[in-house]
Each structure stands twice: as structure tokens, then as C-alpha cells.
Computed example of a mutant assay.
Amino acid sequence: MNHDPADDDGGDDLTGSKRLRRGLPLRAVAPNAVTALALCSGLSGIRFATAGRWELAVVLVLVAGVLDGLDGRIARMLHGESRFGAELDSLADAISFGVAPALILYLWTLETLPRFGWMASLMLAVFCALRLARFNAAIDADDQPHKSAGFLTGVPAPAGAGLALLPMFAWFWSGEPFLRDPRFVAPWVALVALLMVSSLATLSWSSMKLRRNVRFEALALVVIVAAAAVNAPWETATVACLSYLASLPFSIAGYARIRRLRAAGTIPAPTPSPSA
């Protein structure tokens, strides 16, 4: 029997169509679209900073932070998690929370301190990228002591961007000249950059759980914070950043306590999960 070459072509077409079906699932489009919007928001902040519209530039970075908090939840809700989405999210975070705040702060005041101002901006942008690279490298690791205890390693990128912009928050509502002094802003930005790549245990909001007897009070607190954010946004952002800074000693002490209890055998050490 003669072999028809068309049969081979049909088989190749069938195999090719199967390969095409293995692309990004449709349910993963929504969270990735939100991530792309966060990236656009962060980049737009740079655009308005070049025009001297400082409040709008900072607002767009904050909008990127809100969208960054939504994309992961949307992905889990739609079961649309993917490696592509994780890589896109890290790339968007590096630009929205590293590059954008660094350039906004540089154009706002650090450019008047040429060498050290640019060095501080570089530290913020590069250290944010290094933090995200460390997170991606450890995402499949079995041994993650901070994560297993309900903590993060170092200050996360969105919180780091907010802390770096804290002088701008306070300057918007107070107008104090020293808040725009590059001799104050440059060391502050460098300190925040170091906190992002540090090994300090920081709070993980996704691991925190409320007791049933305080849920009503927590809801009332959310309403109060939302009302304050609408009526006094920059004062509220300042208080939020200071509150986060105040929480760092407690998170460090809490993780140290868990380590002592694990070493004493009071609580079991985390068991490595089998890799998929």
C-alpha cells in the first residue's frame, strides 16, 4: 500500500493544533489584564512627574498598588494562576514600585543632589528588582521559614514604594520645607531600599486572621479608614506608613518567638511540601 504524504501533513496539523491549545487559558486573561493596568498606572505616574504634577503622579503609583492587590485574588478566584502571570506580576511590580517611585522622587527633589540623589534613586529601583528576583527564585523552595510562620522576608515592593514616598505624603498636607530637602530624602530612600532586600520578618496580611469577637470592630475600623482616606488622603497615607513602620519591631519579635518555640519543640517545625 502506498503511503500518502497528506496523512503526515494531517498528523502534523493535528499535533500543531494541540500545541496551540496549550497556550494561556482564557481565565488567566482577566488577572493578567489587571496586572497590565497596574503597569500602565505606574508608568503614567512617571509621565505626570515629568510635568510637575506630583499629586497625580503619586496617586497613580497608589492605584498600581491597589491593582497589584487585586490581580492575585482575581487569579485565585478564577483558578487562572499561571507561571506567565507570576512573571508578568514581578515585572510590573519592579517598574510600578521600583522604577516609578525612584524617578518621581528624583524629579521631585533628588536631582538637586546630583550624585547622591541619583544613587539613592538607583538603590530603590535596583533593590526592588533584586527583592522580586529573590522572591521568584524561592517561590518553589520547600524551606521558607518566614513564610511557614506567616511572615514575609523584607518589606514587600508595594509597601516599600509607599514608605519611599512618605516624605511626599507628608509634604502634600504640611508643606514643611525640610520634607523636600534632598539631604533628608536621599538617606530615607536608601534606608527603604535596604529594608526591601533585608531578611527582616515583616507582616503578611494574607496570613492574618481575625477572631470572631472582633470582626465588627474591624469592620468599623475599615469604614473609618475609608472615610479618612476620602476626606484627608495624604494625612491618612502618612499615618498608614508610620503605622507600618511601627509594626516592624512587633513582627521581628513575633518571628523570633516562633523560632524559639520551634527550637524548644513547643510547636512543630514546618514540614516541606512535596513538589508538584
Rank of each mutant, 00 (worst) to 15 (best):
9 D>N: 11
10 G>E: 10
10 G>A: 14
15 T>Q: 09
18 K>H: 08
20 L>M: 14
25 P>Q: 04
27 R>K: 13
29 V>K: 08
42 G>Q: 08
46 I>A: 07
48 F>P: 14
53 R>N: 15
54 W>Q: 10
71 D>E: 03
72 G>H: 03
77 M>W: 08
82 S>A: 01
84 F>K: 00
87 E>G: 01
89 D>W: 01
92 A>N: 07
99 V>M: 13
115 R>I: 15
118 W>R: 00
119 M>G: 15
124 L>P: 02
125 A>S: 05
132 L>M: 10
133 A>R: 11
142 D>Q: 15
148 S>G: 04
152 L>N: 15
157 A>E: 05
176 E>H: 15
180 R>A: 13
182 P>Y: 07
184 F>T: 15
185 V>S: 14
193 A>L: 13
193 A>N: 07
211 R>A: 02
213 N>F: 03
214 V>I: 06
216 F>L: 11
218 A>W: 03
218 A>S: 09
221 L>M: 01
222 V>F: 02
222 V>R: 06
223 V>H: 08
228 A>G: 04
229 A>S: 03
231 N>D: 11
234 W>Q: 10
234 W>E: 00
236 T>M: 06
238 T>Y: 00
239 V>L: 09
243 S>N: 09
249 P>C: 02
250 F>L: 14
251 S>Q: 05
253 A>F: 04
258 I>L: 13
262 R>K: 11
